[in-house]
């Protein structure tokens, strides 16, 4: 992506006024495992090994409610695995975590999503032989027509169906997919699938959304507006946890950054704090970045990540 566009969106995206949650998170200590004033998700001792490789080993992590938390780290740091564990798409070797105060480690993945913690996938999972609209409508929660006993009673779900459809149309418009609504999802481009997946996740009106590289493969102009959406989400009170390699994006919109390397959290802090952290610079950002923070310069590693 051209450097000038990323420069501009980085500055646009920087919030002018911070809301209460954003202010609150800035009071937390910039160190791994620090306590947050109002945590929506608290994680203890989550670990997962693949053979001899310890892919994830997070001692303690809290995620602040109502802010955008970025999750960064080199390729293979264990970010996706960590998401998989939190949403129980993978089984942790050890660990416990609470979402909204409720323990989640023993829940099934669908129940976690139902509880309000919804994720997207790094490798998109579009439902190819369903229309874009059906993909969207699937996302909506608590649809009475989804229960077998009421499926045949069209009267009992027709109204809700119309509501869901209106909501989907609105979101599709915002994600530049309105013109594709009746196409098979399989006909979408890679970037469009990313958008669809994110929009679909939003259909369920999550409290906490976990996005795995949502911007990868999306064109710069759209990244811009996506960032706007993410911020709007936060302003609506949704907590966002997202994995991203693009440092401009991260610096631009995140309120808090968690750095993962070799499975462990090595640093936490506000964007400013993290970019000044020597450990992070050594492990991930590289020296070229340290001096350039805030000027919108980009790390070369960010690009590599986007190829995934």
């Amino acid at each position: 992506m051209p450097a000038n566009s990323s420069e501009s969106h980085a500055s646009d995206a920087r919030p002018t006024a911070r809301n209460a949650a954003q202010m609150a998170v800035r009071t937390a200590q910039p160190e791994p495992g620090s306590v947050k004033p109002d945590a929506i998700l608290t994680i203890d001792n989550v670990s997962r090994s693949f053979g001899g490789l310890k892919a994830v080993d997070v001692k303690r992590l809290e995620v602040q409610r109502g802010v955008i938390t970025a999750f960064i780290g080199p390729n293979g740091a264990g970010k996706t695995t960590f998401f998989n564990l939190l949403t129980r798409f993978d089984d942790p070797d050890t660990g416990a975590w609470n979402f909204n105060g409720k323990p989640m480690q023993d829940q099934r993945s669908y129940a976690i999503a139902k509880a309000g913690m919804v994720r997207t996938f790094q490798l998109t999972k579009s439902l190819g032989k369903m229309s874009v609209m059906d993909n969207m409508m699937l996302g909506a929660k608590n649809q009475s027509g989804e229960s077998l006993s009421r499926a045949l009673l069209k009267g009992s779900w027709r109204k809700q169906e119309r509501r869901v459809e209106a909501q989907a149309t609105d979101l599709l418009g915002r994600f530049n997919l309105a013109h594709m609504r009746d196409e098979y999802a399989a006909t979408l481009s890679g970037g469009q699938r990313k958008l669809l997946e994110m929009a679909r996740a939003l259909m369920s009106e999550p409290e906490l959304i976990l996005l795995d590289e949502p911007m990868a493969g999306v064109n710069p102009a759209l990244v811009q507006s996506l960032l706007g959406h993410v911020q709007a989400l936060r302003d609506d009170g949704v907590s966002v946890l997202f994995i991203e390699h693009d440092m401009d994006v991260i610096m631009g919109i995140s309120d808090w950054i968690v750095v993962l390397a070799e499975g462990s959290v090595i640093a936490e802090g506000t964007p400013e704090q993290v970019s000044q952290n020597d450990v992070v610079v050594d492990a991930y950002l590289g020296t070229s970045f340290a001096g350039a923070t805030g000027d919108g310069a980009r790390s070369s590693e960010g690009d590599e990540g986007n190829q995934q």
Binding site: F89, A113, F121, M130, L138, S204
Partner: peptide, 10 residues
């Protein structure tokens, strides 16, 4: 189409 996608949507 993809049961993990359905699962992720609750």
């Amino acid at each position: 189409e993809d049961e993990d996608a359905a699962r992720a949507l609750g």
